[in-house]
């Protein structure tokens, strides 16, 4: 197994640490509310929660610049929030309202936002990788020093598109950061039940790109590793591969009785909860007090409540507009 790299952590900065904690908590509380709203049938369709994996998106996205691009999966609420897509527009999207970030055409699995270069919300496993390669190709051809971060689960590693894209990106030295979120289960199929070689970094290095496994439950480790990788990618060194070792605390979607894993295994991973562990660490170092925590939680409660209110008071797109956005509207000459 590839060894996780121990990064030399700089001394924790209080302001930044509290920011990282806040970002993870925003995602956690937002999604807890989503689960509640799903049960209340306010949100429909499929809903895939990121709870347990928050350190990955929050840590990794700190390393990106505003004009970098992100391609994510159907488990992307956390990435969208961490990227700066507003909680109000995400919640409205899940309600199917036209104030949603995809005008209610996408739903939970298809969050898009041009302003933050957030390219979805792709619900075909592996399907986002070729798009990320193309975005990076466009940047390279136009001489823009941008990075495209492409998130996908370890399940995507079994898809042909994974291998085609790692090869193409490495062959053409494209600025893609491949971010594999290894939560050990492709829906209900364990990694070891689907891969002859379970060391994912080995697969990436066979395509001649640097690859590092990272503790995906440690937000600082995620941030540092991504910063290091982004430096390589942005400087023209070609793609990098990061394997974030993480765990999904909740079911795959809301319809999953979780027959494929032991409760004990879930409980064991929960002792490594990225939020609880980071919070305890900050408290131990005297960087976080009860007052801070209270304020953060209160702010988030307000933000989530506002998002729900925004979604509730949002409007339904008129049915007459049904066939819009199939083709671009003709520009009147």
């Amino acid at each position: 197994m590839s060894q996780q790299v121990a990064f030399q952590s700089p001394p924790l900065d209080r302001h930044h640490s509290l920011f990282l904690l806040r970002e993870m908590l925003r995602i956690r509380r937002f999604e807890e509310k989503c689960a509640e709203l799903y049960s209340a049938t306010k949100i429909r369709g499929f809903l895939h929660l990121y709870i347990g994996e928050e350190a990955v998106a929050v840590g990794a996205l700190q390393a990106l610049e505003p004009d970098d691009a992100i391609v994510a999966t159907y488990r992307e609420h956390g990435h969208a929030l961490a990227r700066g897509v507003s909680a109000t527009s995400i919640m409205a999207e899940m309600y199917g309202k036209q104030e949603g970030c995809s005008r209610g055409r996408g739903g939970s699995m298809h969050l898009f936002n041009a302003a933050t270069r957030f390219y979805g919300g792709n619900a075909i496993v592996g399907g986002g990788l070729p798009v990320a390669v193309g975005l990076a190709l466009a940047d390279k051809l136009q001489g823009r020093p941008r990075v495209t971060a492409c998130f996908f689960g370890e399940g995507a590693v079994a898809e042909g598109e994974f291998h085609e894209c790692l090869n193409l990106a490495a062959l053409w030295k494209l600025p893609v950061l491949f971010c594999c979120e290894n939560n050990l289960y492709a829906m209900g199929t364990a990694l070891k039940r689907s891969e002859s070689e379970t060391d994912l970094c080995l697969k990436a290095t066979s395509y001649e790109m640097p690859a590092w496994p990272i503790d995906g439950m440690d937000v600082m480790a995620c941030e540092e590793a991504t910063q290091r990788a982004v430096l390589t990618v942005r400087s023209g060194g070609g793609p990098c591969f990061l394997e974030f070792r993480t765990y999904r605390f909740r079911a795959h979607s809301m319809y999953d009785p979780q027959l494929y894993r032991d409760k004990q295994e879930v409980e064991q991973w929960k002792t490594r909860d990225p939020i609880a562990v980071f919070q305890a660490r900050l408290q131990e170092l005297g960087l976080l007090n009860e007052e801070d925590l209270k304020r953060i939680e209160e702010d988030i409660t307000t933000e989530v409540a506002k998002a729900v209110e925004f979604a509730e008071t949002g409007t339904w797109e008129p049915v007459e507009d049904l066939t819009k956005f199939v083709y671009s509207e003709k520009v009147q000459a």
């Binding site: 070729p130 390669v133 193309g134 190709l137 466009a138 940047d139 598109e161 085609e164």
Partner: peptide, 12 residues
Amino acid sequence: AFVGAGIGAAMG
């Protein structure tokens, strides 16, 4: 990969 790269490049 290369058809998808065409899609991404078009968006880029």
